[in-house]
Nucleic acid binder design. Structure first.
Lengths: 347, 347
DNA sequence: CTGAAAGCGCTTACAG
DNA sequence: CTGAAAGCGCTTACAG
């Protein structure tokens, strides 16, 4: 009920501040922006008046003048959000402190919808666009190549000559397989997703490389679906029906956490102990899966929030006019060790 | 390389269109907006010119004049996004067709961050705000009560006198328990989350009501964590250690899908068949969990995307000046039947 | 040290 | 039927 609480239904303008302080709007503007030269006392009086009236400059008016809206568009086709969400919050975190707000554009796989969103962004004069998706090897259903505003790609297939941030899948796979080597594992299998995914090949190749480097036998990666069910089936293939386990793997590196969970469940059903008999490492570090697995799952984390942050900062720098090399930047993954991979010998 | 592709680094203005068409900017504006009266031929010529030059009005300038930015802010503290994401995409879908874009504001549980985002929204003159969260019974860490712009709450605790959309948890629970009754189940248990959640009580009460209405025995709901592990433990409590199953439940209604998954896994480990011996229904219809469960899990869906859509439309209508009754609107859930609950007798 | 003027890109009364 | 003028809320040369 205090008349100061929300006195006007309409925001205070600079003109009102100037009138209340007995100066021109030009002077008021300069006082509040720290521009120009004026008596410290005048500046202070104007500042206090603005404060008292709860003045906040109209961003739309400023943007019109500055040709800079302090907004960016974030395009995604990851409705389910498993990968997008950490990435989005990384982007948002990186930008909010610079006063930049993020428009959320969920484009699904719908070209019309994507076009609609891109046009809305352009009309609203966003300073730039971040394109993100659920797959590193697929384009969004819209062409962002000639937009007159900067575009950064993150976790999606970039246009040629663009700047993109992706996770270093090969590096992530190395982390997992080298960890197994360090634990003294000798027969390390790889169960992963379908051949249609680029990451499947990148990770499988790294898997082979590490084993070769360590002089360990390389068995062909088993490709299947990204599902628990495939994890189950893969265990049947790897461990056969025989009771004895000679020649069977002592470690399984899985292409995602769901497969890993299926593997662990299937091993338990066979009475094979994890991590004592067989170590398991997953990929994605999807907390809700990794922590529900028995035992909790060690997994490779793609650092998606950090990736989003990098993308946000890169866009900011581009918007600020700093030139940047085109190309794909691979950001390192990290291995989150829980209990499924086993302890170092004597550890 | 075509000089039409992106000829100017700077967008075409109305002034340029007017010049190219040989009219004043006022006439050009009216022609494009279908305002005023003029020779059809003039209007057409201007339209064609605008089209040819790729003119798109600067939304910032329009907003300044119209006092309407065609943007809204979406506040959420659901970093993980399980509940937020469908809701967000519902909001976004409802608004994109009205030309309204959505600012994503991830506020975590951080009051400073929330304040920062709200101020950025106000400065950018958003037309309204949608507040959403991960819990129906908790406030966001910021006060939105006296904002001078409309606020709609969705899936979060509203301020008194506000408009809110939430899922009808009691109704959702009824759907599940009544389904069991229809299938002829006689001893229906309820395993759910912690007492600190309002939904736990709402659903438990509906559970009791339905059983009473059907003249079936009511056993006290088992409260625990929202986890698979609790689902496991609950099975131990419900089914005891004895081999015989006289008096044991023939159906379990679970407070979320993770609990349900734990229950089903534990039943299988005991050799109890799902759905033949015991039917199981979960809550949330979290696809990735429900489909990986063996057998696939029947579950109550809160229709979060629809809820987001309603919230978006309600905000639009408020922004448009239509008055609306304050209060909490409960939106119906729906039961998604898969295989874990069993078939009707003789079905 | 301070203010009047011009202008960002658009729209909307009001003249002619 | 068309255009000159005023103005949305602000900033930035330029005078004084």
């Amino acid at each position: 009920m205090s008349s100061d609480a929300s006195p006007a239904q309409t925001p205070v303008t600079l003109r009102e501040v100037a009138a209340a302080a007995g100066v021109s709007v030009a002077t008021a503007s300069k006082a509040l922006n720290g521009q120009g030269r004026m008596k410290a006392q005048t500046r202070e009086r104007i500042r206090e008046t603005a404060q008292r009236l709860g003045f906040r400059p109209n961003s739309l008016a400023q943007s019109l003048l500055r040709r800079r809206s302090f907004t960016v568009g974030l395009l995604t086709n990851d409705t389910y959000g498993r990968f997008s969400l950490p990435l989005m919050s990384g982007v948002s975190d990186a930008l909010v402190d610079a006063g930049v707000s993020v428009f959320l554009c969920n484009v699904e796989d719908d070209t019309r919808l994507a076009q609609l969103h891109v046009e809305a962004m352009l009309d609203k004069r966003v300073d730039g666009i971040i394109a993100t998706g659920k797959r590193i090897d697929r384009h969004l259903p819209v062409d962002l190549a000639n937009l007159r505003i900067p575009v950064i790609y993150a976790f999606t297939q970039p246009d040629p000559g663009a700047i993109a941030f992706v996770s270093d899948d090969a590096g992530g796979a190395r982390l997992a397989v080298e960890h197994f080597c360090r634990l003294g594992k000798k027969r390390i299998a790889h169960v992963t997703g379908p051949a249609s995914f680029a990451v499947v090949h990148a990770r499988a190749e790294a898997y082979r490389d590490v084993l070769t480097e360590h002089g360990l036998p390389v068995s062909e990666p088993l490709l299947g679906a990204w599902s628990e069910a495939w994890g189950h089936d893969a265990v049947a293939k790897l461990f056969g029906d025989k009771a004895g386990r000679e020649g069977a793997p002592d470690a399984v590196f899985c292409g995602n956490d769901q497969i890993a969970r299926g593997v662990i469940d299937a091993l338990r059903e066979r009475g094979i102990g994890v991590p004592d008999d067989v170590g398991v490492i997953g990929f994605d570090n999807w907390q809700i899966v990794a922590e529900a697995t028995r035992p909790p799952l060690s997994s490779v984390d793609m650092n998606l929030a950090a990736l989003g942050r990098e993308a946000g900062l890169a866009l900011l720098s581009l918007v600020g006019g700093k030139p940047a090399e085109p190309g794909i930047r691979k950001l390192p993954c990290r291995l989150v060790v829980r209990q499924s991979c086993g302890r170092p010998p004597g550890g």
